[in-house]
């Protein structure tokens, strides 16, 4: 009984991932012995220098990559492959260029819960609902190449949410945007994520970023990784109050967390450019 209550939503235990180059046979260790428990409704950011295996963790949880060793579980059951219960927002959004905004947002509705059992009219209504949620009303019939970077990012977010996944996996979703747009969309992301809702109603979220302040602003916990091979260096609990807005950036604790994370990755970041 008690075990079920305390069971983490996601559990990674001793996860190791090695890639073997097909021609040379050269073996690269992307992840070494990564252990991490994530609770229901938690927003976890993973930061670290390039080459720390951040994206590999995401791909393993998504089921797109299998770990070389270790356990990956969701709700206590091993993850065997990709599924609509774990939605992914890719770094470059992976929008379908031949689909309109509407077509992209509704793309997965025929396949995963909750859209599978819906009638076409209900699906259309759901698409309209998410178009509105990400403020894209009026652009429904545009193709991705007609949209700005920020608008594409919203389409990708709407598609992710419309599929109703249990877990949100976001791989540097704001990375391609300019600094101002990023800051605006970070706050918007928290609003859409459901910051004001009670924790058990929020979506469990894993968010990859290389932006330290972004991680502090968004996360309940920040996982700091080190590279070559990718390991968990430290995990910080960001106990800043929610809902958060711009003013939180002026909070001395905000700066303290950012400094702490920077201290943890500085050496490797400096090594990388040396």
């Amino acid at each position: 009984m008690n075990g079920a209550v305390n069971r983490p939503k996601l559990r990674l235990q001793g996860v190791t991932k090695a890639f073997v180059a097909p021609r040379t046979g050269h073996r690269t260790l992307a992840l070494a012995d990564v252990s991490l428990d994530i609770d229901q409704g938690e927003f976890v950011c993973i930061v670290g220098p390039s080459g720390c295996g951040k994206s590999t963790i995401l791909n393993i949880v998504a089921g797109l990559d299998a770990p070389t060793a270790g356990i990956v579980e969701k709700d206590g059951a091993p993850i065997a492959g990709p599924g609509p219960d774990r939605g992914v927002m890719f770094q470059d959004y992976a929008l379908y260029p031949w689909q309109t905004v509407q077509g992209n947002i509704g793309f997965g509705l025929n396949y995963g819960a909750p859209g599978k059992s819906m009638s076409q009219a209900e699906r259309d209504a759901r698409v309209a609902e998410f178009v509105k949620l990400v403020s894209l009303t009026g652009s429904e019939s545009k193709y991705p190449h007609q949209l700005s970077g920020g608008m594409r990012q919203r389409v990708a977010l709407a598609r992710l949410l419309a599929n109703g996944p249990d877990i949100l996996l976001l791989d540097e979703p704001l990375g391609a945007l300019d600094a101002q747009t990023r800051i605006i969309l970070q706050a918007e992301l928290l609003r859409i994520w459901g910051e004001t809702a009670p924790r058990e109603q929020r979506k469990t979220t894993v968010f990859i970023t290389h932006d330290i302040e972004e991680a502090v602003f968004l996360a309940d916990r920040v996982v700091v990784m080190s590279s070559h091979p990718g390991r968990v260096r430290d995990i910080l609990t960001i106990d800043l109050p929610r809902p958060r807005d711009e003013s939180i950036r002026a909070d001395p604790r905000f700066g303290h967390f950012a400094d702490e994370i920077w201290r943890l990755i500085r050496d490797q970041a400096l090594q990388a450019i040396a």
Binding site: G81, G87, D92, A94, F107, G108, Y111, N163
Partner: peptide, 23 residues
């Protein structure tokens, strides 16, 4: 990435061919 995205949305193989590969 487009094929991976389709897999994460639960599209079976035939749907991935019809709705991603062919377009």
């Amino acid at each position: 990435k487009l094929l991976q995205a389709a897999r994460t949305m639960g599209l079976p193989l035939h749907a991935r061919i019809l709705r991603v590969v062919l377009p």
